[in-house]
Design a protein around this nucleic acid. Structure first.
Length: 267
DNA sequence: AACCTTTCCAACCGCAGGTAT
DNA sequence: GATACCTGCGGTTGGAAAGGT
């Protein structure tokens, strides 16, 4: 069997996009909309693979892409979200309107990871030295956080304990998959989880059945994007809103204590 | 000025989940 | 249910640009 290769065509263009290719792609998507990436290159007359077109559009050509320096506020948010979510770049990017997952991933790998690992003695030569130092300093000495392991899988529901002192063990979707380490797995392997019957009254008495954490993230992300795109939110309102979202998220993950510690450190 | 090293970022690759047939 | 295809994600790479010697 085996997978069909992404690009069947030999001699398909690779590497940097030309201005002409950008124009063709933009014009095509403006006329026909996004999607159908596999057939798009042929229809648009581009000698590129569909994946490449999608990436170019998503990371560069799409309207609303914010380019340029990451602000200290954005950096602070990235660091905090990374503490909670790990390398879930698309989720992190979803909370930074105009930023792409690729950009955040690159920024993390090239700047933040080094700074947070204590390599701040060698500031990046392309980075403004004053930029973002404060936020990095705040988090550098912090203990290794519980992070959601990458490549997590979805499960259909999450049980969150109402007892704030006893979060994770009651939550099958949040229980650690490898007890030997401290990593927190957002979702367990679907097949391994015995999902509780929500109609079991005794269970409902003691626990609150909620959509799973990823569903919450999707929901809040969509809400933020919608409000931002529809002009219902001014940029200045974004920070407090995100702060609230983060608090909700930490609550959902059962990490309120750590979050409070962070706030204390920040103060 | 020339060469070497480092940094950054756009793009590629492979994998996994979702959906259609 | 099995298979094929589509899409999105995260890790990695390659090359241009900047800095250092």
């Amino acid at each position: 069997m085996g997978r069909k290769p992404c690009c069947l065509k030999e001699g398909v263009n690779k590497g940097a996009w030309s201005a002409q290719e950008d124009k063709i792609l933009t014009n095509y998507i403006e006329l026909h909309g996004e999607g159908k990436w596999n057939t798009l290159p042929q229809k648009a007359g581009l000698n590129r693979c569909g994946k490449s077109c999608r990436l170019r559009w998503m990371n560069y050509l799409r309207p609303g892409i914010k380019r340029g320096n990451i602000s200290p506020d954005e950096e602070d948010l990235i660091i905090r979200l990374h503490r909670l979510l790990g390398n879930r770049w698309s989720l992190i990017a979803g909370r930074l309107p105009g930023r792409t997952d690729n950009e955040i991933k690159n920024y993390w790998n090239s700047v933040l990871s080094k700074k947070l690992n204590g390599d701040a003695s060698k500031p990046s030569n392309r980075q403004c030295e004053c930029e973002g130092k404060e936020s990095v300093e705040k988090y550098r000495s912090g203990s290794t956080p519980n992070v959601i392991a990458p490549k997590a899988r979805r499960c259909t529901g999450t049980l969150l304990s109402l007892d704030k002192g006893n979060h994770l063990p009651n939550n099958p979707c949040l229980a650690s998959s490898t007890p030997a380490n401290d990593e927190l797995t957002l979702e367990s392997q679907k097949d391994d989880v015995q999902m509780p019957n929500v109609e079991d009254e005794a269970l409902i008495d003691s626990e609150l059945y909620m959509p799973n954490t990823l569903d919450y993230l999707d929901f809040s992300q969509t809400r933020i994007e919608d409000m931002f795109e529809n002009g219902n939110m001014h940029e200045s309102e974004l920070a407090p809103m995100l702060e609230m979202e983060l608090e909700n998220l930490t609550s959902l993950l059962g990490l309120e204590d750590e979050w409070r510690e962070l706030d204390v450190e920040n103060d």
